[in-house]
Amino acid sequence: MRRLQVIADCCTSCRSCEVACSLVHSGSCWPKEARLWIEPKENATAFTPRICRRCRRPRCAAVCPSGALVPLPEGGAKVDPEKCTGCGACVKACPFGYLRLSPITNVPLICDLCLDRPEGPACAETCGEKAVVVKET
């Protein structure tokens, strides 16, 4: 199974991963639309990338009242924007606080591991410090 691993100590907070994610998903440079984000800590001198953990039994999908989030066999969930009502129940249900809604569409911005990109996830491809890496388990 493929997932993204975060090594927070390596993160320099350059946020290239956020822009790369938004660029491949929305076609524009738009961190607010990214499926991950960097959280600053300690006077903004330490940083943690926040990325969907792709849970085996995703609570976000379990609580979705409209069936817009569908669990995937390899972990994580896929969103159907047509069915999503933007209620935000998934965001509240995420035990890690790693999910957020698009400020424009209110659809959850959930990581899809860039499955349609042969090069793999854009965030990991962009991170020079290897704070976000692809891990096969």
């Binding site: 320099t12 350059c14 946020r15 903004a44 001198t45 330490a46 410090e129």
Partner: peptide, 27 residues
Amino acid sequence: RVGKAACFSCPLRCQDVFDVPGSGRLG
């Protein structure tokens, strides 16, 4: 020195994070 940091979108990460007694964590 306890870490490195970078400006937005920069791979060069030219900034150092220091933790010095009396001044705490600063860049």
